[in-house]
């Protein structure tokens, strides 16, 4: 079990952002975490990353209790945010070296792995280019590779494909599948319902609760919907909190 959450709750004053959610994610699974803006998915993800302490409930990520040991979780996870998360004024290989260093990897391990990863990405010739000068799609691919460079148990992707064209998005998902096949658990939030179809399993959050959780095909079948888009609409249209 890569992630196990039980009655996880987060309140800010009177406002319950995440209300008593429970779920489990298997090792190597691609778990889609869906919800309208303001449904509470970012807050839930923050708690799982050890950035925010839950008000009540508990969760274990990569075998580590998020309440008791939030600092240790950070070593076992990778993170890529919706906003671009590399440094534009550093080169491709400097960015990689920096984050590997932050995760405590040894210099000689970094160098060997860097070459391998860059070659696989087809970015080896661009290794000394500033990241700021790369096209957005390449940056995205690079950011993902950097987030799993230290071989985390779980990688959290917070709307990773925002603003990217469909072709690049598809390539990006190929990378996600590769990571999952290597045993890395992928926890991904997204706004794109076609992407939801790529996930092994999705949960849909509405007003801080998990309104539905299953494989995309089961969800469509049980609600009699043709696409994930319809599923999402049917569940989320009655939401009280729309961000």
């Amino acid at each position: 079990m890569a992630i196990h959450a039980e009655s996880l709750t987060k309140r800010f004053g009177n406002f319950t952002a995440v209300d008593n959610i429970s779920f489990s994610v298997e090792k190597g699974e691609i778990f889609g975490f869906l919800g309208a803006n303001g449904a509470g998915k970012t807050t839930a993800m923050r708690m799982l990353c050890g950035l925010s302490r839950p008000t009540s409930g508990k969760a274990v990520v990569a075998g580590i209790d998020i309440v008791k040991d939030p600092e240790r979780i950070k070593k076992r996870i990778g993170y890529m945010s919706q906003r671009f998360s590399l440094y534009d004024d550093l080169t491709v290989s400097e960015n990689m070296t920096l984050f590997a260093g932050i995760y405590g990897m040894r210099e000689k391990d970094i160098a060997a792995k860097r070459t391998a990863v860059l070659t696989r990405l087809g970015l080896y010739d661009e290794r000394d280019m500033l990241v700021g000068s790369l096209p957005l799609g390449w940056k995205q691919k690079l950011a993902f590779s950097v987030s799993i460079f230290h071989e985390p148990a779980v990688v959290f992707l917070d709307e990773p494909t925002g603003g990217v064209d469909p072709v690049t998005r598809r390539q990006f998902w190929r990378q996600i599948y590769e990571a999952s096949e290597r045993g890395i658990t992928v926890f991904v939030t997204t706004h794109y319902m076609d992407e939801a179809e790529y996930c092994h399993r999705v949960s849909i959050m509405v007003d801080g609760h998990i309104a539905a959780m299953d494989t995309p095909s089961e969800l469509k079948a049980s609600l009699g919907a043709g696409t994930m888009d319809d599923v999402f609409y049917m569940l989320a249209r009655n939401a009280e909190r729309i961000g």
């Binding site: 950070k74 993170y79 890529m80 945010s81 919706q82 906003r83 998360s85 932050i102 995760y103």
Partner: peptide
């Protein structure tokens, strides 16, 4: 502003 601080805070730094 660029969002990198978030990545740093999630990291073991």
């Amino acid at each position: 502003e660029t969002g990198t601080m978030e990545v740093l805070l999630v990291s073991p730094m």
